[in-house]
């Protein structure tokens, strides 16, 4: 041991090594999670994929629409929207962001790190909040910036078919895209903490986001009209189109509904984290 042995009347009969002092705090737990996030190559890589996907797909789409404009069918032109085209990458970004959110938690279970983590922070919940804080902060900043970059870059490439942030609904869609992707990441963290298994967590997350709306299609249309708009992804994506769809919720109402799902997932994850054995 590096500590110098020394007898004293009280306390242990050895000098403690200099390990500082102080207790576990929420802030320190957040710092620890930040260290974990930035020191794992895979998390950095997936984040880069999300950013490149968010920006790249929109740029490519915008470039080809503009270049091919003369060959587009009437139907395609009718459906064309410069905002949606430039933000086309959100689908790919949502896969990356959601997957990484799940992995952030399940990666600890699959490697066994969770035992060290929870032994260091036995209150457990600070770990969940710290992961959420770090990941939400990172995705919010990166996805919001990427959304603006994708939009602005896309408009440049769209040339005469472009629009501006001043146009009605445009700024709302660009901002909502960043918010939606952040919420997807948070939902990923919740599913990871609930299911504690990478494959299961990812399947459940995208089952809810992508498959559930598709399953709805088998229901009678009167049911669909009532239920479909309240599904998590449908609610969240209501804000992602410039023209408002009467079958969907109002943009920010929809986003709020999506956020409520995220909160429910988080609360469930927190309750189970406290109750279950690690």
């Amino acid at each position: 041991m590096t500590a110098v042995q020394e007898m004293s009347d009280s306390g242990p009969a050895y000098t403690r090594a200099s390990t500082g002092s102080g207790e576990v705090t929420q802030w320190r737990t957040i710092r620890a999670e930040w260290v974990k996030f930035r020191t794992l190559w895979s998390s950095v890589l997936v984040m880069v994929i999300a950013v490149l996907g968010m920006i790249g797909v929109g740029l490519v789409a915008s470039y080809f629409i503009n270049a091919d404009w003369g060959h587009l069918r009437a139907r395609q032109i009718a459906r064309f929207n410069p905002v949606v085209t430039s933000l086309d990458g959100y689908n790919m970004a949502q896969l990356a962001i959601g997957t990484l959110g799940v992995l952030l938690v399940t990666g600890e279970y699959s490697t066994g790190l969770i035992r060290a983590t929870m032994a260091a922070v036995p209150a457990r919940l600070p770990v969940l909040w710290a992961k959420l804080t770090v990941y939400t902060g990172i995705t919010f900043v990166l996805m919001m910036v990427s959304s603006f970059v994708a939009f602005l870059g896309g408009q440049v490439l769209l040339g005469s078919h472009s629009t501006t942030l001043d146009a009605p609904g445009v700024l709302r869609v660009v901002v909502a895209t960043g918010v939606y992707l952040t919420l997807v990441g948070m939902l990923g963290v919740a599913f990871g903490a609930l299911i504690r298994n990478t494959a299961g967590g990812i399947a459940a997350l995208f089952g809810v986001l992508l498959v559930l709306p598709a399953i709805m299609e088998v229901l009678p249309s009167t049911w669909q009209d009532v239920i479909a708009k309240y599904l998590p992804s449908n609610a969240g994506q209501a804000a992602l189109s410039v023209t408002l769809d009467p079958a969907m919720l109002a943009p920010w109402v929809g986003m709020a509904v999506f956020a409520v799902y995220v909160v429910i997932g988080m609360v469930a994850a927190a309750v189970l984290l406290k109750r279950r054995d690690v």
Partner: peptide, 11 residues
């Protein structure tokens, strides 16, 4: 170790 140390402010 740095991540673990951070939870308790170990230098």
């Amino acid at each position: 170790l740095l991540a673990l140390a951070a939870t308790t402010g170990i230098p």
